[in-house]
């Protein structure tokens, strides 16, 4: 029996109703933020709306996008993964070294994926089966992955990658020559790759039975278990996915930089990854968040960085602003919960 009177009572004022609607659709916030940011920057920041710059932003999504997708899976299931950004380096240096030695792009890529996945598996086992705290587990794998990369390369960067590899993954398709610009503007492969991944994994998370089980596990592990969800397996799988995403990021970044180093993703970026996911609606308590929201959260942060760059804002001030944005979003989350 649908009780209309209760419904009406709860939506007494239009403002309150709007608030309820917004709380029910957490992906709205990042979408709205991104759109607002895009309009404001387009109007006020010179060169922001240039096709070249837009394509740059699009390409940059590829650097953190995969890690954000992985983080979303982990956080929806109720965990957190601090290790992914150093796992990128660990994967990259091994894969790149193999590539240099054998000239086989395929072997290198497979190795990068495998190393990324192995770290994910370690995290998954520790959290899901050994029942350790996700934050600290992934903190220690973060340290280990970084240490591994440094040890493996003796702190040297890996150069001399096959051209085919660099050309394939850092390419831009549909090059267009605009006006007098000597360099053609194209659509970066990295951006397309992350877009495809986001659509596919977003579909899996929001539409399939597996995705629903990820949400239910995060929403209430005990209820999910009694309802027949194999919660340990689900938790484990989200870390494995996050590990694979780190492997993919290793491929994309190695190709873009033309080298594999021990610090492919700087540590401040970890904050970007978490911030994008939290702005996208995820909560540390689990059961919330979406790939759509996360990607727009990432877009928002990327545009922010980009505009600061174009405006010549000091990167240090940018850090202050971004850190404050994250705190503000968390504050908003507290309000939303009330």
């Amino acid at each position: 029996m649908v009780d209309e009177s209760q419904f009406r009572a709860s939506g007494a004022s239009p403002g309150l109703k709007l608030w309820h609607w917004i709380s029910a659709n957490p992906a709205l916030l990042p979408v709205a933020l991104s759109v607002a940011m895009a309009i404001i920057f387009a109007l006020t920041v010179p060169k922001f709306a240039d096709l070249r710059n837009i394509m740059n932003i699009f390409g940059q999504l590829g650097f953190l996008g995969f890690l954000c997708i992985g983080m979303t899976y982990v956080m929806v299931a109720g965990g957190i993964d601090l290790s992914s950004y150093t796992v990128v380096s660990a994967s990259a240096v091994v894969g790149a070294t193999a590539m240099v030695a054998t000239d086989s792009t395929l072997l290198g890529c497979v190795l990068m994926l495998a190393i990324g996945c192995s770290f994910g598996i370690v995290n998954g086992i520790a959290v899901a089966y050994l029942r350790m705290i996700p934050f600290i587990v992934t903190l220690s794998t973060m340290v280990v992955a970084e240490g591994f990369a440094i040890w493996f390369t003796q702190a040297q960067s890996v150069y001399g990658l096959p051209d085919a590899f660099i050309d394939n993954f850092s390419a831009r398709i549909l090059p267009m020559t605009l006006g007098i610009s000597p360099r053609p503007v194209g659509i970066p492969v990295a951006g397309i790759a992350v877009l495809v991944a986001a659509l596919a994994l977003g579909f899996v998370l929001s539409r399939t039975i597996y995705g629903r089980r990820v949400y239910l596990t995060g929403a209430n592990e005990e209820t999910a278990r009694i309802s027949g969800v194999k919660v340990r397996r689900i938790e484990f799988s989200t870390y494995a996915i996050a590990g694979i995403m780190a492997g993919i990021t290793a491929i994309v970044l190695t190709a873009d930089l033309g080298t594999a180093t021990t610090a492919m993703v700087r540590d401040v970026r970890l904050m970007d990854i978490i911030a994008a996911t939290v702005i996208g609606g995820a909560s540390l308590k689990g059961g919330k968040g979406s790939i759509l929201g996360t990607m727009f959260g990432l877009l928002f942060l990327t545009m922010l960085s980009n505009a600061f760059n174009l405006l010549g804002v000091s990167p240090f001030i940018a850090m202050v602003i971004k850190g404050s944005v994250l705190v503000a979003v968390i504050g908003l989350d507290v309000l939303r919960a009330k």
Partner: peptide
Amino acid sequence: TDGLFLDEAVWKNISAT
């Protein structure tokens, strides 16, 4: 504590099993 997903919609609770 272990019967419902309190923060989820009623329909998602019903179909969970």
